[in-house]
Amino acid sequence: MRRILAALLLLAFAALGLFWFVTRPTPLPADALDGLTPNLANGEQVFWAAGCAACHADAAAKGEAKLVLKGGQRFPSPFGTFVAPNISNDPAAGIGGWSALDLANAMLRGISPRGAHYYPVFPYASYTKASLQDVVDLRAFLATLPADATPSAAHEVGFPFNIRLSLGAWKFLYLDPAWVVTGDLTPEEERGRYLAEALGHCGECHTPRGALGGMERARWLAGGPVPGGKGNFPNITPAKLTWSEPDIVEYLTSGFTPDYDSAGGHMALVVENTAHLPESDRAAIAAYLKRVPPAQ
C-alpha cells in the first residue's frame, strides 16, 4: 500500500513536472540581440509588413492617425472577445519602456516582459518566424511613434481560457518556427514566404483553425469561417485564387480586384499596410502565393 502511494506521488510529481515543463514561458537568451544595431528605415518597412496598425490603431484611422497605436479594436472568438492593447510609445499605457529584447520575446515567444503568456490572438505563431534584426529595427521605429495614454482594456475571456499558464500547452502544440511552404524556392519566393508566413501573418486569418485554435498547416491558406462572426475568410491557395501575379500585386497596392471591386472588411486594413511596401515585396508575396500547395 505504501509503495503504491509512493508510486502515485511520484507519478503526480512527474505529471506536475511535465505540466510545468510544457507550460513554462521560455524567453530568448539574454544575449540574443547582441551585436544587432537598429536600422530605422527598415524598421518602418517591418512595421507596415507586419501590419501592426491594422489591429492596434483605430480601425477608421487614416494617415497620421494610423500611427497612434492606442489599441481598442475588438476580436470576437469562440474563446471570448480579445481587445487589442495599447502598444503606443507611452511608457505606462503602451510599450514605451520596452527593450528590443522585450519586443523580441513578445513577437517570437509570445511572452510579456514580466514573463506571462500572451493569447495567440496576437499573431506570434507567425511572428515567431521573424528575424531578430527585423525586430530590433521595428523596436527603433516604434519608438518614433506617438505616445497615447489610453489604458488597455482587459480581454473578455472566461474560464478556463483565462488561465494563461494553459497557453504554454497551446504553444507546445502550435508554436512552430518551421516554414510551411518548403522546397526549391527562388530568392523572390523566399522573400514572399518571409513576408506572408512571418511578418504579414496571412495564415492567421486565411488558414483554418482546429478545435484548440491552432492553424492547420496541412490546409495552409485554404480559408475558413470567421471566428465569432458571419462569413468566411477566402481560400487563397492556387486552387481558388486564380488571379495573375500582377492582379495580386495590384490588389495589395490599391485594393482593386481584377473586376475593380475593392477590398472590404479587415482586408482593406491589410491593403493600407501592404500599400506602403516596395513593389518588389508585393510581387514577392504574389510569387509566393503561386507556390502554396493548392487546397480545396
Binding site: 487614416k62 468566411n232 472590404g264 472588411g265 482593406a268 491593403v271
Partner: peptide, 23 residues
C-alpha cells in the same frame, strides 16, 4: 498613374471596409 491609383483605391476601400457587409 500607378502612384495615384493608390489613393483612389483607399477611397473605395475606406468606405467599403466600414459600410459594406463582409462576405
Amino acid at each position: 498613374l500607378k502612384a495615384a491609383m493608390g489613393a483612389v483605391g483607399q477611397a473605395c476601400g475606406g468606405c467599403h471596409k466600414q459600410y459594406r457587409k463582409s462576405e
